[in-house]
Protein backbone atom coordinates (compact mmCIF):
# COMPACT_ATOMS: atom_id res chain seq x y z
CA UNK A 1 0.00 0.00 0.00
CA UNK A 2 3.10 2.17 0.23
CA UNK A 3 2.94 1.94 -3.51
CA UNK A 4 -0.47 3.59 -3.63
CA UNK A 5 0.76 6.36 -1.43
CA UNK A 6 3.67 6.93 -3.74
CA UNK A 7 1.65 6.91 -6.87
CA UNK A 8 -0.79 9.36 -5.38
CA UNK A 9 2.01 11.84 -4.96
CA UNK A 10 3.90 11.15 -8.16
CA UNK A 11 1.34 10.39 -10.82
CA UNK A 12 -0.80 13.24 -11.94
CA UNK A 13 -4.40 12.27 -11.74
CA UNK A 14 -5.21 10.27 -14.82
CA UNK A 15 -8.89 9.66 -14.44
CA UNK A 16 -10.71 7.08 -16.44
CA UNK A 17 -14.37 7.27 -17.19
CA UNK A 18 -16.38 4.82 -15.12
CA UNK A 19 -18.50 2.98 -17.62
CA UNK A 20 -21.14 3.36 -20.20
CA UNK A 21 -20.97 5.11 -23.49
CA UNK A 22 -17.53 4.04 -24.70
CA UNK A 23 -17.09 1.62 -27.54
CA UNK A 24 -16.51 -1.68 -25.81
CA UNK A 25 -14.97 -3.86 -28.42
CA UNK A 26 -11.72 -5.60 -28.98
CA UNK A 27 -11.99 -8.40 -26.48
CA UNK A 28 -14.82 -10.46 -28.00
CA UNK A 29 -14.45 -14.16 -27.45
CA UNK A 30 -11.33 -13.78 -25.32
CA UNK A 31 -10.94 -15.70 -22.09
CA UNK A 32 -9.85 -13.69 -19.06
CA UNK A 33 -9.22 -15.16 -15.62
CA UNK A 34 -10.22 -13.17 -12.54
CA UNK A 35 -8.79 -14.09 -9.15
CA UNK A 36 -10.92 -12.26 -6.59
CA UNK A 37 -9.97 -11.99 -2.89
CA UNK A 38 -13.33 -13.13 -1.58
CA UNK A 39 -16.54 -11.46 -0.54
CA UNK A 40 -15.57 -9.95 2.81
CA UNK A 41 -17.42 -6.69 2.28
CA UNK A 42 -20.36 -5.35 0.35
CA UNK A 43 -17.99 -3.37 -1.81
CA UNK A 44 -16.07 -6.51 -2.74
CA UNK A 45 -19.31 -8.28 -3.69
CA UNK A 46 -20.24 -5.28 -5.83
CA UNK A 47 -16.83 -5.33 -7.50
CA UNK A 48 -17.38 -8.98 -8.42
CA UNK A 49 -20.82 -8.36 -9.90
CA UNK A 50 -19.66 -5.26 -11.80
CA UNK A 51 -16.73 -7.26 -13.20
CA UNK A 52 -19.14 -9.93 -14.40
CA UNK A 53 -21.38 -7.25 -15.98
CA UNK A 54 -18.41 -5.64 -17.68
CA UNK A 55 -17.24 -9.00 -19.00
CA UNK A 56 -20.66 -9.55 -20.51
CA UNK A 57 -20.66 -6.10 -22.13
CA UNK A 58 -17.23 -6.68 -23.61
CA UNK A 59 -18.12 -10.18 -24.75
CA UNK A 60 -15.38 -11.65 -22.58
CA UNK A 61 -15.48 -15.22 -21.31
CA UNK A 62 -14.66 -14.57 -17.62
CA UNK A 63 -13.14 -17.35 -15.54
CA UNK A 64 -13.94 -16.37 -11.97
CA UNK A 65 -12.10 -17.72 -8.94
CA UNK A 66 -12.94 -16.78 -5.35
CA UNK A 67 -9.83 -17.09 -3.14
CA UNK A 68 -11.69 -16.83 0.18
CA UNK A 69 -9.01 -14.52 1.60
CA UNK A 70 -6.12 -16.93 0.97
CA UNK A 71 -3.08 -16.14 -1.10
CA UNK A 72 -2.36 -19.80 -1.81
CA UNK A 73 -5.79 -20.08 -3.42
CA UNK A 74 -4.98 -17.08 -5.60
CA UNK A 75 -1.62 -18.54 -6.61
CA UNK A 76 -3.33 -21.83 -7.45
CA UNK A 77 -5.98 -19.98 -9.48
CA UNK A 78 -3.33 -18.08 -11.44
CA UNK A 79 -1.44 -21.31 -12.21
CA UNK A 80 -4.66 -22.86 -13.42
CA UNK A 81 -5.34 -19.79 -15.61
CA UNK A 82 -1.83 -20.15 -17.07
CA UNK A 83 -2.45 -23.84 -17.71
CA UNK A 84 -5.69 -22.94 -19.53
CA UNK A 85 -3.67 -20.42 -21.58
CA UNK A 86 -6.12 -17.55 -20.93
CA UNK A 87 -5.65 -14.27 -22.80
CA UNK A 88 -5.23 -12.16 -19.68
CA UNK A 89 -5.50 -12.33 -15.89
CA UNK A 90 -7.17 -9.91 -13.48
CA UNK A 91 -5.83 -10.16 -9.94
CA UNK A 92 -7.13 -8.46 -6.79
CA UNK A 93 -4.21 -9.39 -4.53
CA UNK A 94 -5.11 -10.30 -0.94
CA UNK A 95 -1.63 -9.30 0.31
CA UNK A 96 1.13 -7.15 -1.16
CA UNK A 97 4.04 -9.59 -1.02
CA UNK A 98 4.93 -13.03 -2.31
CA UNK A 99 3.80 -12.69 -5.92
CA UNK A 100 7.17 -12.73 -7.76
CA UNK A 101 7.22 -16.43 -8.57
CA UNK A 102 3.71 -16.94 -9.87
CA UNK A 103 3.63 -13.64 -11.76
CA UNK A 104 6.97 -14.52 -13.41
CA UNK A 105 5.33 -17.73 -14.60
CA UNK A 106 2.50 -15.69 -16.12
CA UNK A 107 5.05 -13.37 -17.72
CA UNK A 108 6.95 -16.32 -19.19
CA UNK A 109 3.67 -17.57 -20.63
CA UNK A 110 3.17 -14.06 -22.08
CA UNK A 111 -0.15 -13.56 -20.32
CA UNK A 112 -0.68 -9.95 -19.23
CA UNK A 113 -1.74 -9.47 -15.59
CA UNK A 114 -3.79 -6.49 -14.42
CA UNK A 115 -3.94 -5.74 -10.70
CA UNK A 116 -7.28 -4.52 -9.39
CA UNK A 117 -7.92 -2.31 -6.36
CA UNK A 118 -4.70 -3.11 -4.49
CA UNK A 119 -1.03 -2.90 -5.37
CA UNK A 120 1.81 -5.35 -4.77
CA UNK A 121 5.41 -4.96 -3.74
CA UNK A 122 7.91 -6.17 -6.29
CA UNK A 123 9.24 -5.40 -9.76
CA UNK A 124 6.80 -3.37 -11.81
CA UNK A 125 7.38 -5.41 -14.96
CA UNK A 126 5.58 -8.37 -13.38
CA UNK A 127 2.23 -6.85 -14.30
CA UNK A 128 0.83 -4.86 -17.19
CA UNK A 129 -0.90 -2.20 -15.12
CA UNK A 130 -2.73 -1.70 -11.87
CA UNK A 131 -6.19 -0.18 -11.59
CA UNK A 132 -6.97 1.41 -8.24
CA UNK A 133 -8.59 4.38 -6.62
CA UNK A 134 -6.52 7.23 -5.25
CA UNK A 135 -7.40 7.28 -1.56
CA UNK A 136 -5.74 10.66 -1.03
CA UNK A 137 -7.86 12.07 -3.84
CA UNK A 138 -11.01 10.64 -2.20
CA UNK A 139 -10.21 12.57 0.97
CA UNK A 140 -9.42 15.67 -1.06
CA UNK A 141 -12.74 15.53 -2.93
CA UNK A 142 -14.59 15.26 0.40
CA UNK A 143 -12.61 18.19 1.81
CA UNK A 144 -13.18 20.34 -1.25
CA UNK A 145 -16.91 19.69 -1.03
CA UNK A 146 -16.90 20.93 2.57
CA UNK A 147 -14.88 24.03 1.69
CA UNK A 148 -17.52 24.88 -0.94
CA UNK A 149 -20.45 23.94 1.25
CA UNK A 150 -19.55 26.21 4.19
CA UNK A 151 -18.62 29.05 1.82
CA UNK A 152 -16.20 30.86 4.08
CA UNK A 153 -18.10 30.50 7.33
CA UNK A 154 -16.30 29.14 10.38
CA UNK A 155 -16.61 25.38 10.65
CA UNK A 156 -15.43 23.04 13.40
CA UNK A 157 -15.10 19.55 11.95
CA UNK A 158 -15.02 16.22 13.75
CA UNK A 159 -13.37 13.31 11.97
CA UNK A 160 -14.14 9.61 12.25
CA UNK A 161 -10.98 7.82 11.17
CA UNK A 162 -10.74 4.31 9.84
CA UNK A 163 -8.75 1.61 11.58
CA UNK A 164 -5.57 3.11 12.99
CA UNK A 165 -2.64 2.50 10.67
CA UNK A 166 -4.68 1.20 7.73
CA UNK A 167 -3.82 2.80 4.40
CA UNK A 168 -7.34 4.13 3.65
CA UNK A 169 -7.38 5.83 7.06
CA UNK A 170 -3.96 7.42 6.57
CA UNK A 171 -4.58 8.50 2.97
CA UNK A 172 -8.15 9.70 3.35
CA UNK A 173 -7.09 11.77 6.35
CA UNK A 174 -4.18 13.23 4.42
CA UNK A 175 -6.33 14.14 1.41
CA UNK A 176 -8.97 15.87 3.50
CA UNK A 177 -6.34 17.83 5.40
CA UNK A 178 -4.76 18.93 2.10
CA UNK A 179 -8.10 20.17 0.83
CA UNK A 180 -8.89 22.26 3.91
CA UNK A 181 -5.31 23.47 4.39
CA UNK A 182 -6.06 26.66 2.47
CA UNK A 183 -9.31 27.39 4.31
CA UNK A 184 -8.59 29.04 7.64
CA UNK A 185 -12.27 28.93 8.53
CA UNK A 186 -12.28 25.11 8.65
CA UNK A 187 -10.60 23.28 11.48
CA UNK A 188 -10.59 19.62 12.55
CA UNK A 189 -11.26 19.85 16.28
CA UNK A 190 -11.58 16.17 17.12
CA UNK A 191 -10.40 13.04 15.40
CA UNK A 192 -10.87 9.50 16.64
CA UNK A 193 -10.98 6.05 15.12
CA UNK A 194 -14.32 4.35 14.51
CA UNK A 195 -12.70 1.21 13.06
CA UNK A 196 -14.79 1.54 9.87
CA UNK A 197 -17.84 0.07 11.67
CA UNK A 198 -21.32 1.45 12.36
CA UNK A 199 -21.30 0.58 16.05
CA UNK A 200 -17.98 2.32 16.70
CA UNK A 201 -18.98 5.24 14.49
CA UNK A 202 -22.05 5.75 16.65
CA UNK A 203 -20.24 5.37 19.95
CA UNK A 204 -17.37 7.69 19.00
CA UNK A 205 -19.81 10.28 17.65
CA UNK A 206 -21.64 10.21 20.99
CA UNK A 207 -18.34 11.03 22.65
CA UNK A 208 -17.74 13.91 20.22
CA UNK A 209 -21.23 15.29 20.87
CA UNK A 210 -20.74 15.22 24.65
CA UNK A 211 -17.32 16.80 24.42
CA UNK A 212 -18.40 19.55 22.02
CA UNK A 213 -21.19 21.14 24.00
CA UNK A 214 -23.85 18.59 23.08
CA UNK A 215 -22.96 18.96 19.42
CA UNK A 216 -23.72 22.70 19.27
CA UNK A 217 -20.04 23.43 18.56
CA UNK A 218 -19.76 20.92 15.70
CA UNK A 219 -20.44 22.16 12.19
CA UNK A 220 -19.53 19.09 10.14
CA UNK A 221 -18.60 15.42 10.34
CA UNK A 222 -16.07 13.81 8.04
CA UNK A 223 -16.12 10.00 8.16
CA UNK A 224 -13.53 7.85 6.37
CA UNK A 225 -16.29 5.46 5.29
CA UNK A 226 -20.05 5.51 4.92
CA UNK A 227 -20.75 2.87 7.55
CA UNK A 228 -19.28 5.00 10.33
CA UNK A 229 -21.25 7.97 8.99
CA UNK A 230 -24.48 5.95 9.14
CA UNK A 231 -23.79 5.10 12.80
CA UNK A 232 -22.85 8.70 13.58
CA UNK A 233 -26.06 9.99 11.97
CA UNK A 234 -28.05 7.93 14.49
CA UNK A 235 -26.01 9.37 17.35
CA UNK A 236 -26.67 12.90 16.07
CA UNK A 237 -30.43 12.29 15.82
CA UNK A 238 -30.53 10.74 19.28
CA UNK A 239 -28.76 13.79 20.67
CA UNK A 240 -31.68 15.89 19.43
CA UNK A 241 -29.88 17.47 16.48
CA UNK A 242 -30.72 17.21 12.80
CA UNK A 243 -28.00 15.42 10.85
CA UNK A 244 -27.41 17.02 7.47
CA UNK A 245 -28.52 20.43 8.75
CA UNK A 246 -27.15 21.10 12.24
CA UNK A 247 -24.16 18.95 11.45
CA UNK A 248 -23.11 18.42 7.84
CA UNK A 249 -22.13 14.84 7.01
CA UNK A 250 -19.61 13.89 4.33
CA UNK A 251 -18.09 10.44 3.93
CA UNK A 252 -16.46 8.11 1.42
CA UNK A 253 -17.37 4.84 -0.40
CA UNK A 254 -20.90 5.45 -1.75
CA UNK A 255 -22.67 2.37 -0.37
CA UNK A 256 -26.48 2.11 -0.75
CA UNK A 257 -27.32 3.00 2.87
CA UNK A 258 -25.60 6.39 2.66
CA UNK A 259 -27.72 7.21 -0.40
CA UNK A 260 -30.82 6.37 1.62
CA UNK A 261 -29.54 8.80 4.26
CA UNK A 262 -28.77 11.46 1.63
CA UNK A 263 -32.27 11.01 0.19
CA UNK A 264 -33.67 11.58 3.70
CA UNK A 265 -31.54 14.71 4.06
CA UNK A 266 -29.52 13.17 6.90
CA UNK A 267 -26.24 13.05 5.01
CA UNK A 268 -24.93 15.60 2.54
CA UNK A 269 -22.27 14.05 0.34
CA UNK A 270 -20.30 10.90 -0.34
CA UNK A 271 -17.28 10.21 -2.52
CA UNK A 272 -17.50 7.07 -4.59
CA UNK A 273 -14.97 4.30 -4.34
CA UNK A 274 -16.05 2.78 -7.62
CA UNK A 275 -16.53 -0.98 -7.77
CA UNK A 276 -15.88 -0.74 -11.50
CA UNK A 277 -12.19 -1.60 -11.58
CA UNK A 278 -12.73 -4.05 -14.42
CA UNK A 279 -13.94 -1.49 -16.99
CA UNK A 280 -10.65 0.44 -17.11
CA UNK A 281 -8.77 -2.87 -16.95
CA UNK A 282 -10.59 -4.21 -20.00
CA UNK A 283 -9.96 -0.96 -21.87
CA UNK A 284 -6.25 -1.18 -21.18
CA UNK A 285 -6.21 -4.85 -22.15
CA UNK A 286 -8.09 -4.22 -25.40
CA UNK A 287 -5.58 -1.53 -26.41
CA UNK A 288 -2.64 -3.71 -25.41
CA UNK A 289 -3.75 -7.02 -26.91
CA UNK A 290 -4.96 -5.57 -30.20
CA UNK A 291 -2.64 -2.65 -30.86
CA UNK A 292 0.24 -3.35 -28.51
CA UNK A 293 -0.30 -0.05 -26.67
CA UNK A 294 1.44 -0.15 -23.29
CA UNK A 295 -0.95 1.38 -20.74
CA UNK A 296 0.09 3.66 -17.89
CA UNK A 297 1.50 1.64 -15.02
CA UNK A 298 -1.07 3.02 -12.60
CA UNK A 299 -4.61 3.69 -13.74
CA UNK A 300 -6.53 5.81 -11.26
CA UNK A 301 -10.29 5.40 -11.14
CA UNK A 302 -12.57 8.38 -10.83
CA UNK A 303 -13.47 9.56 -7.31
CA UNK A 304 -16.88 11.00 -8.00
CA UNK A 305 -18.81 13.13 -5.55
CA UNK A 306 -22.50 12.38 -4.97
CA UNK A 307 -24.91 14.77 -3.27
CA UNK A 308 -28.68 15.09 -2.92
CA UNK A 309 -28.78 16.33 -6.53
CA UNK A 310 -27.58 13.02 -7.94
CA UNK A 311 -30.80 11.01 -7.56
CA UNK A 312 -29.90 9.34 -4.25
CA UNK A 313 -32.98 7.06 -4.23
CA UNK A 314 -32.12 5.76 -7.68
CA UNK A 315 -28.46 5.27 -6.72
CA UNK A 316 -29.42 3.36 -3.56
CA UNK A 317 -31.68 1.09 -5.60
CA UNK A 318 -29.14 0.54 -8.36
CA UNK A 319 -26.36 -0.25 -5.92
CA UNK A 320 -28.42 -2.70 -3.89
CA UNK A 321 -28.74 -4.67 -7.11
CA UNK A 322 -24.94 -4.95 -7.31
CA UNK A 323 -24.71 -6.94 -4.10
CA UNK A 324 -23.51 -4.21 -1.69
Amino acid sequence: MKLLNLLALSVSALTVMGSGAMAQSGLEGMTIGFSQIGSESGWRAAETSVTRQQAEEWGVNLQFSDAQQRQENQIRAIRSFIAQDVDAILLAPVVATGWEEVLSEAKDAEIPVVLLDRGIEGPEDLYLTSVASDQVLEGRVAGEWLVDAVAGEDCRVVELQGTVGSSPAINRKQGFEEAIAGADNIEIVRSQTGDFTRAQGKQVMEGFLRAENGGADICALYAHNDDMAVGAIQAISEAGLTPGEDILVVSIDAVPDIFTAIAAGEANATVELTPNMAGPAFEALAAYLNDGVEPEKFIITESRLYTAEDDPEGEAERRRGLGY
Binding site: Q161, V164, R190, Q192, T193, Q203, E206, G207, A211
Partner: peptide, 15 residues
Protein backbone atom coordinates in the same frame (compact mmCIF):
# COMPACT_ATOMS: atom_id res chain seq x y z
CA UNK B 1 -11.80 4.08 30.07
CA UNK B 2 -13.20 3.88 26.53
CA UNK B 3 -15.59 6.78 27.04
CA UNK B 4 -12.85 8.77 28.74
CA UNK B 5 -10.54 8.25 25.77
CA UNK B 6 -13.30 9.41 23.42
CA UNK B 7 -14.08 12.64 25.26
CA UNK B 8 -10.47 13.43 26.18
CA UNK B 9 -9.43 14.14 22.60
CA UNK B 10 -6.24 12.04 22.61
CA UNK B 11 -5.06 11.00 19.14
CA UNK B 12 -6.44 7.53 18.38
CA UNK B 13 -2.93 6.08 18.09
CA UNK B 14 -2.79 6.21 21.90
CA UNK B 15 -6.12 4.45 22.58
Amino acid sequence: MNTGILVSGFPPEFN
